[in-house]
Design a binder for these strands. Structure first.
Lengths: 273, 273
DNA sequence: GGGTGGTTTCCGTCTGGCGGAAACACCGCA
DNA sequence: TGCGGTGTTTCCGCCAGACGGAAACCACCC
């Protein structure tokens, strides 16, 4: 029923011969306005939106008003615009995240209870990963990722796991382009990365040591559709770097949780709709 | 920075003199197509969408293609359409849910760990409530609500709490219209409801006995912006009906959690932006 | 009071949205 | 193998409504 895997469509703005011509359809403008709202810009004035999208001010005004009338955008008391509850509501029905979340949450809770650390779930889209769920408590280490964040697939432990099980062309695309070194420990050499991916496929669980941030280590495992089906997500636990010693002991419970989720996913997608 | 409270805009389709004329702007059509995706219809064929929106098939086709090109919609392997990851991603940045969620989650985890029951968070929009977050484990009772679900504010324990602290006109609007009786125990009499709202304001925590479903009881408390600020959300725990005896004992921890969230919300919204 | 940055309204031009219709793809059935 | 039904995709001529420059408007601060 649901397409889990596979890279989604790439660009929203069509690029004709190098120059990015803003698609001039009315629907395109609506989407461009929505695109203006990302993690770095959750609230913007009308002029900002116009500037960032490149649309004329009056056009932006019209589109924003229409979106607001429907509830896709809401206005803060300071006059700035932000994404509205109505759009959130519609989007929260996205099967790709909702089903996954529903199934995974109880298992993630078990892991949280056993560790009190950040427990995360992410899916791959193209050469990036998107965090779909995360639970954390008072005692968990502060992270720079949050639900809905998008990252290059090569830069995190969970991403490497997803990459290891991605189609060949995606792997090559990532390995072929230069990797950003987030910390002095980040593995950027394609050769080393390649053997790392091999090991991930062999050992299932992956220990990632300060690859994205100097202060955190991660343990990650693949989630499949059914025990032996295609990899649809990655499950991970993030610890403060000084607690790295505890990471090894988390391999078993993490893998068990990943298996639990995989089995349940298999059960849900195959027999019924 | 963020407008928390207040009813958002109501209708998406403008109703001119009783007859709902589908707004004929291009942007409106985009939104109408998105509206076609709700909890009951997470995946639909092109023809279904056309039928449900009342748009011509060719128009629907054009709009859907455009939405798909951008990532707002994705196509299942069976050819049906559903909400895409890209839209989910944008919408997950909705401040009204995101900030609330970020702040509340650790406290909700504490409650979950102490009870292993469903812990929920909801906001009010107009005369309805929308579930913004929910955590549950293997042992928690199965619920018919999930994140993103919308309900009449009068029908659940958490809704009554939100209603008790809503503006006068909202309260009158709800009390003035007939209440649906979900179970034989549902309070529908406006008079009784009114005294119940009074008690909620006095006692803070509210015990709701099988109001929405025969098999569940709930404990609910208001979440404010700062300890004495306006009510911005409701926090609740749902138990299986036979465990109702445990509900009284949850009042204290629930209230403490609600206070914790309120304090943190006050801290986040006042001083910084 | 005058300057600045943002918002809202107006209106003439003309582009791109519109949807009927026809062609196409697929499937189950006889 | 042909046939009807269901859903999808493409085509194209007409004209509604999108477009954006410009000007009015508003709030705030020197």
């Amino acid at each position: 029923m649901v397409r889990w895997l596979g890279a989604g469509p790439r660009e929203g703005v069509c690029e004709t011969g190098g120059v990015s011509t803003t698609r001039s359809t009315a629907a395109g403008k609506v989407l461009e306005v929505l695109s203006a709202f990302d993690r770095e810009h959750p609230a913007q004035t009308l002029s900002e939106i116009a500037q960032r999208t490149g649309l004329a001010l009056s056009t932006t005004h019209r589109v924003v008003m229409e979106l607001a009338g429907w509830g896709a955008l809401e206005r803060g008391e300071d006059g700035s615009w932000h994404v509205g509850l109505r759009l959130w509501e519609i989007a929260s029905g996205c099967p790709r995240t909702q089903i996954l979340r529903d199934v995974a949450l109880p298992f993630m809770q078990d892991l949280y209870e056993a560790t009190h650390e950040n427990v995360q779930l992410a899916v791959r889209e193209g050469t990036e990963l998107v965090f779909v769920e995360r639970i954390a408590g008072h005692r968990s280490v502060e992270l720079l990722t949050s639900v809905g964040t998008r990252f290059p697939v090569g830069s995190t432990g969970m991403g490497r796991v997803l990459l290891a099980h991605a189609p060949r062309d995606i792997q090559e695309e990532v390995l072929g382009s230069p990797q950003r070194a987030w910390t002095p420990h980040t593995v950027t050499d394609p050769r080393t990365l390649r053997t790392q991916l091999d090991r991930i496929r062999r050992e299932q669980v992956f220990l990632s040591d300060r690859q994205l941030s100097e202060s955190t280590v991660a343990v990650a495992a693949p989630v499949r559709i059914g025990r032996t089906g295609p990899v649809s997500a990655a499950l991970g636990i993030v610890l403060a770097a000084p607690d790295a010693g505890r990471a090894r002991g988390l391999r078993e419970p993490l893998l068990r949780a990943a298996y639990g989720i995989s089995d349940e996913l298999g059960r849900r997608t195959r027999p019924t709709g």
